[in-house]
Simulated scan of single mutants.
Amino acid sequence: MKRRTVQILLALLVIIYRKTWFWWIFNHFAGRLVPASREFFQILSFLEFSVTFLAILYLLVYEGGRILELKWKWRYPVYLLLAYGVNHISGIVFSFLTPATSNQMSLNELVEMTGRQELLYLLLITCLLGPITEELVYRGVLMNTFLKDSPWYGDVLLSACVFGYVHVSDGITPLAFFTYASGGAIVAFLYRKTHSLYYPILLHIMINILAFWELWVLLFSGS
């Protein structure tokens, strides 16, 4: 019982750190820097790595080395492609129903401030480090600690709700929340079906690369 209590407290600390203290520390060190500068992104990258390290350490302690193993069955890539397709279609639908969320507006502002030389830093954070960190926390830590393998998919629902909340907690609206929560549910369901973190991480990376595709083209166009 004591071990379980400690586990829950540590899981909550990791989740809360990613949502609140993470940004407090970032603002403290980056507040005096030029927004979207190289140093700005380097501090953000370091903090993302710190969350990744904490999440992996937590999972290794409470789930063992098997949590980081790549599980393979022929149907898993099919699940991945189906999840990507469903997310893409739902994204198109929601784009007509909801205005830009606070999270999206912040990203748009960051993109506008980012110069060509710093663009690679932005893309690596949003399309690689960010997805890895978020999947380790909101799928790995959260779903393996709370309602794990619930017969009524409570772990998927909880993960989706937390994921939706942390992305629209500023100026939250029902439609904005549901937009991110539905995406979180798709990724969480993929993790539930594969029991491997690599598939939701890959899905999240694919989703973000598509979202920033124009920036990738700009980066490598040479123009």
Rank of each mutant, 00 (worst) to 15 (best):
L203N: 03
G183Q: 10
A30R: 10
Y138I: 00
H167K: 07
T179S: 00
S196E: 07
E134V: 00
I16E: 10
G115M: 09
K73G: 01
R4W: 13
E109P: 11
Y17L: 14
W213P: 01
V61C: 03
M113N: 08
V111S: 07
R32F: 13
S159V: 08
Q42N: 03
G91Y: 06
S95W: 02
W213D: 06
I92N: 09
R75F: 07
Y199T: 05
F41E: 04
M143S: 04
I15H: 08
H88K: 12
L215N: 00
K19R: 11
N103W: 15
Y121P: 13
G171R: 04
L122S: 05
E109H: 12
P131E: 02
F189S: 14
L120N: 03
V187A: 00
V187H: 00
L128Q: 02
I92V: 10
L81F: 05
V137M: 01
I207R: 01
I125Q: 00
L97H: 05
G154P: 11
F178S: 13
N144R: 10
K73I: 11
K193A: 06
L215Q: 00
F22K: 03
A83L: 12
R38K: 11
L10T: 15
F189R: 05
K73N: 03
P131Y: 09
L60V: 04
W72H: 06
E39V: 13
I43T: 14
Y191W: 04
V162N: 09
Y165F: 09
L33V: 12
F163P: 14
K19T: 15
V217R: 01
Q7G: 12
W23F: 14
L54A: 08
R18D: 14
W21G: 01
L81S: 15
F146L: 14
Y121R: 02
R3N: 09
L47P: 14
L47G: 10
A36P: 09
G130Y: 08
L110I: 14
L215R: 03
K73M: 06
I186N: 06
T145N: 05
I92C: 06
L10Y: 11
N144E: 09
S196R: 10
G222K: 09
G65K: 13
T194N: 01
V14A: 01
C161K: 02
I43L: 14
R116Q: 05
E63P: 12
